[in-house]
Design a protein around this nucleic acid. Structure first.
Length: 243
DNA sequence: GCGACAG
DNA sequence: ATCTTGTCGC
């Protein structure tokens, strides 16, 4: 199991983190359609936290895009690299997520993130940031509309409506299940919005959330439990004998 | 100034 | 994200 420390030079303040976003934002590629939905492999990434113990666990799960069966998976555990600040989520998740991706035995191809890409106060959310750092095509599928506005999409699966920052479309609210709250899709890096929506629908044959994020969520929680269990056992072993 | 705010 | 039991329903 890979263990990750906070990378050298990682931003320590909100000001530094925002400056990094402003600098890297220009490297996002928006004029590529990305891989065709339903073909090749699609990787989901997610992270679970134990702030008390300063632990983060990340998982990367590779699915066959046609069958949605698991092809490969990897996890990594690390130290919390940044506090949760709306708009700066990437600085909290990326080091451990990258370690998990690096630990995969095969190329990640398209990466589906649990959060946003372009739909971000500075148009550089987690999915875009991860895409720029890895060079991989990425999209973001979030569970909440963040600060953005949208009309309620048509009630049937496939219904969508623009996700708006003022009048600018930064993503789409997409209904993945009939009559169920939509998910919020935005482009990360090297994928078009229409393609991101098609991928999201291809990954939701049964549940609201993409199979990629469901699998990654389950795996990173398990990895965190195991890491905590290991640490707790060590603490007990190393602790002074109680009276 | 206050409240909201991906995970 | 995380704290948390049972419960209603397909």
């Amino acid at each position: 199991m890979t263990t990750v420390g906070v990378p050298a030079g990682w931003p320590a303040t909100e000001e530094e983190a925002r400056a990094v976003q402003d600098e890297l934002r220009g490297r996002v590629v928006l004029d590529e359609p990305g891989p065709p939905p339903g073909t090749g492999r699609v990787t989901g990434v997610d992270v679970a936290y134990d702030d008390e113990r300063d632990l983060v666990a990340a998982a990367a799960v590779v699915l066959d895009a046609a069958t949605l069966e698991v092809v490969a998976e990897a996890t990594a555990v690390g130290r919390v690299s940044f506090p949760y600040v709306p708009g700066l989520l990437a600085f909290r998740e990326i080091p451990t997520v990258r370690a998990a991706l690096d630990a995969l035995p095969c190329p990640p191809d398209l990466v589906v993130c649990d959060g946003y890409g372009l739909a971000h106060p500075r148009r550089f959310g987690l999915a875009s940031h991860l895409g720029v750092l890895t060079g991989l095509p990425t999209i973001g599928v979030a569970k909440n509309p963040f600060t953005f506005t949208h009309d309620d999409p048509a009630g049937a699966r496939g219904g969508s409506s623009p996700l708006l920052a003022g009048t600018e479309e930064v993503g789409r609210a997409l209904r993945t299940r009939d009559g169920v709250k939509p998910v919020f899709v935005s482009v990360g890096h090297r994928v078009s919005l229409d393609n991101a929506l098609a991928h999201t629908l291809a990954l939701t044959p049964r549940y609201r959330l993409p199979e990629t994020t469901r699998r990654a969520d389950a795996l990173c929680r398990r990895a965190l439990r195991e890491a905590v269990g290991t640490r707790a056992a060590g603490d007990v072993r190393d602790a002074p004998t109680a009276s």
